[in-house]
Amino acid sequence: MQSPQASRPLAGILWMALTGVMFVAVTAVVKHVGDGVPAAQAAFLRYVLGLVFLIPMIRPIVAARLTGRQIRLFGLRGAVHTLAVILWFFAMARIPIAEVTAMNYLSPVYITIGAALFMGERLPPRRLAAVIVALIGALIILRPGMKAIEIGHIAMLGTALFFAAGYLIAKQLSGEVSAAVVVGMLSITVTIGLSPFAWAVWVTPTLPQLGWLFLVACFATAGHYTMTLAFAAAPLTVTQPVTFLQLVWAVILGAVVFGEPVDGWVVLGGAVILGSVTFITWREAVARRSVTPVVSATKV
């Protein structure tokens, strides 16, 4: 836990705000590519083109001398993250950016539930109430019976669930190996996991499409880096609420660039979910636990 002297709240807020810009830029570029490249292939190319950023992590991975159990866990994490990424790319081409962003806020809620079910974490009444409130936020966004629930919405529910499963596995491994190994092994296993899906739907991409997908890799890598700087500067209780700005940027971007209508219910639902996640994070800080991640930690 960070000491008060080491905490730099303003720096943490600024870095997290920049993180939000980076991840919204990722969604914008993927939205721009759209169905021009199949979802599985687009996801595969994003990871293949991003392997250049893996070079500094090769030495720590080799030096880690991973056990058979650790390799199996990394493989399992890669498998669930692969499914999450495919579903995310699929949803991005079918529903508005704001809805994708708001529904991704559910991942930390799933993580809280998963930690209680599979890791023995306690789920006291106040945290349980916060989880229920977050699920109500999801219902506000989806509004079943009031508007059509599209396949993209179903894909995003799966995306958040698989990202949460991957994070819980990473949580187990983070106490055993360095962060560089965790990140590097994720890139390797997801690239391998995506390859057969990409092969099955392969179409020859154009040079501009390759350029856009490399830009996705650049923005995603930059986002994870600035998020790390935010974590180092200030505690989660300070940086978590700033992630709401991602939804603001997404709404503006969707309306201005892609002509998507501004849906106040989506903004309200996203605010309800994020408020719940922020409360859970605060309760964990009070109890000196660290299970629930910042929203941006569950990203492509």
Rank of each mutant, 00 (worst) to 15 (best):
D263F: 03
L245S: 07
S187P: 00
V37P: 09
L54C: 08
L253R: 01
A233R: 02
T101N: 12
R72M: 05
L194Q: 10
H81W: 07
V267G: 03
A222H: 04
G12A: 08
Q172C: 08
A25C: 13
P56A: 12
P38T: 09
R288F: 07
K171C: 11
P60L: 02
A232S: 14
P235S: 08
A11G: 00
F90E: 01
G158A: 03
T112Q: 09
A40C: 11
R127C: 04
I97G: 01
T228M: 08
V277A: 15
L76R: 00
R8W: 11
A287L: 15
A285H: 11
V131T: 06
R8D: 13
G50E: 07
L268I: 13
T278M: 10
F163W: 14
L215P: 05
D263I: 13
A40D: 06
R122V: 04
G50A: 07
P9Q: 11
P108T: 12
F197T: 03
P205N: 12
E284G: 07
V203H: 11
L106G: 12
G270T: 12
L142D: 02
H224T: 10
P56S: 09
V295P: 00
L157A: 12
A129F: 14
A138S: 05
F90R: 12
F219P: 00
T239V: 15
V203K: 11
G184H: 04
G75A: 11
M119C: 03
G193N: 09
V30A: 11
I192Y: 00
I58Y: 01
L210A: 02
A200W: 06
L139V: 15
R72S: 11
V248E: 10
V133E: 05
V216H: 02
E284T: 06
W212G: 00
L45H: 09
L73W: 10
T27W: 02
A164K: 13
G78V: 08
L245N: 01
I280C: 13
I188S: 01
M119E: 05
V33G: 07
V295Q: 10
Q246C: 08
A232F: 01
R59A: 15
P60S: 04
T204F: 13
A138G: 13
H224C: 04
M57H: 07
I58R: 02
E150D: 12
P96A: 13
S107F: 06
M92Q: 14
L66M: 11
T298N: 15
F89H: 10
G68D: 00
T206Y: 04
R127W: 02
H81P: 00
F258C: 09
R122Y: 01
R288L: 12
L194D: 06
V267M: 14
T191H: 03
V131D: 08
T101K: 02
V29M: 05
T206R: 09
R77G: 15
T204Y: 03
A297T: 02
G223V: 13
